[in-house]
Design a protein around this nucleic acid. Sequence first.
DNA 1: GATTGTGAGGTTTTT
DNA 2: CCTCACAATC
Length: 774
Amino acid sequence: MSGPPLNPEQRAAVAHDEGPLLIFAGAGSGKTRVITHRAARLVSERNVKPWRILAVTFTNKAAGEMRHRLGGLLGDVARQIWVGTFHATCARILRRHAEDVGIRQDFVIYDDGEQRAVINRVMQELKLDDKRCPPKRLAAWIDRAKQEARGPDDVEKNDPFSQAAAQVYQAYEKRMRASGAVDFGDLLLMTLRLAEADTEAGRALRAKFDYVLVDEFQDTNHVQYRLVRALASGTRNVCVVGDDDQAIYRWRGADVRNILGFREDFPDATVIKLEQNYRSTKRILRASHAVISKSASREPKELWTDNADGAPVTLVASEDERDEARLIVQGIRELRREGRSLRDMAVFYRIHAQSRVIEEALRAANLPYVVVGGIRFYDRAEIKDLLSYLRVIANPHDDVGLLRIVNVPPRGIGKTTTDRLQAAGAETGESIWSVLPRVAPELGKAASTKLAAFRELVEALAKKAPDLKPSELAREVLEVTGYVRALESEDSAEADARKQNLQEILGSMEEFEQEAEVPTLAAWLESVSLQSATDEVAEGDRLTMMTVHAAKGLEFPVVFVTGLEEGMFPYRGLDGDEEELEEERRLAYVAFTRARERLVLSHAFVRRLFGTPKEGFPSRFVDELPEGDVVRVGKTGAFGRATSSRSDAWGGGRSSSVPSYGSRAASRFGAGSGASSSPSPARLGSGSWRPSAQPARTSTPAAQSRGLPTGSYVDRSMADDIPRDGLQRGARVRHAKFGVGQVRDVLPGSPVRVSVQFPNWGLKQIVASFLEPA
DNA sequence: GATTGTGAGGTTTTT
DNA sequence: CCTCACAATC
């Protein structure tokens, strides 16, 4: 394939022949290109059989991209290469070896919700208190056990919770097997067991691949690591690619040590670092590096680029989250006026809850957008209903699926009945479907008749299934179950929307039938189970919005990162340990390095989260930015950063025909921006503190209508007459109760409050008048 | 057995 | 603020 020539490091990675290879691939360093070229070369020049190459990714999107590029390089043979996500690859292997691991060949894959349903059921059966053992916590506990390759018998049980959890785990596994179901963790763990087994099947699996390539290796968990090692144990031709700086899934069991410690398991590994970045401007890289270089225990490296300096990073300060949304919309508009397309822009946030306010502002401004992630299309009730029918038809022992649809649409089979059936199944460890013929007659005439009718319905559909395409079967289901009729009789807008969604899924099934290699129902169900919310693609000229996690692996010409406040980003969880903070740092790095040309960072001084307003200081990640590469916009840094003169840089105060936010303005402020933005640390000395130098321009109606924050330049804290001398960041102050501490930041608002770090009390926010210099 | 009401709890979430 | 889960109703 064409494209620019590979650089020396890339070439070395592609040309590497045998033995372990570890590639540190920085953001935007052409990683996917290297992997695909390498795989292609193995086939075309080294005569490796394509089906003896395994390339594993984490997301369907990445797998699809790789498949696509391999197709471009190799043509049709590319299809024989094993390209897939960890989970899809494992599912594929398990279908072939179901017997060897003791599961049904037609197993279904339970998602988190279905997993929870099983946990809830098991807890009821064990009569466990869901206050003491929240199902959520149990699910996380079981997941973690599986990630660590621990079965119910080799978990630690040293406290009451883990004792209960182990009990649940045991019963959960039993119920999953009875249901012919596996969860995501099972896919990996069962494949690992198989791959490490000293059996015929195990040996065959270990010898199956001549080359194993793994992408995003920093995100592997223990089981995935061992699986890779086992699958590559035949030839030791294992190539892992990753970036420890982009490890952001520790909370999901990923362990960066897998990449950092790779050289311990494979001392002879060749190590290649791809440090040339082809994506971003120098300024964006400098900003990114400023943040990540503070990270402890990382592989030493620094991205560099031949790209232009580019525009400075824009730092937007706003009053609150609505203000932030307004300013972002304003920035978007200006960039558009410069000719930027909406599709070139993305807005990132730390948590989904932040999206709403921004969405509202975008809607008000008539700017089309798409929110990536959040709820999956397949998670909608009507879709899950149809899916459950199809799954029960494929495997009637799927209890969760069966319980979902047994009374949908209502057919008079209520809770009392299903409770009895569940209890019967629990007694013998069988599925509901299995106990149905035996138990139904004991439930009285009415229930028994209805259950028999349901059974016949499912059996009739199952009988037809082999002769129908998936989409035809789905239509049949919607018809004979009366599902569509029930929706129609509802005659509401909502029911209409549901019908449309069902129509859409039928369409996607037909598409699948056209394209898939094996267009069976089972294959379709599996592909749906393994799909994620982020796989849904955005198209058209719209802005993209997503969490930073969802943004990994993507790039945009313009990136807005919102909510950069202490507590929000870095997000402060319950424990907030050092490791967690490190991960937040890497997350910020990921966010920043998504940007190609323009990076806009924003923070608000007050943010309402879940209703309650909370004050927030600018994130440390913002403080750490190199001043010379930053231009400030919006509300005056409340603690006297002399930034007000910059405030009009966002298009206020000047004729709108001069796009100040755009590249022209950027270059205008560019090189010299260091002079115009104040040096940090912020000072509270009277000089820079005085707002009087600034006209209260934004309070004019015109400015307001432009959506500028009212009173941007009028800091209300000015009104106070409290002692400020010595109240600057870093200053030592004394408090009557907490003793001596160090000023970390000064809050806007009245009365002026200061956040102070006390050795024994931690970070406190204190009204300034209660403090004296120490 | 379905419908409406209160209360807790609500990072991130590749699969 | 908003959603989901269970409870108290008709």
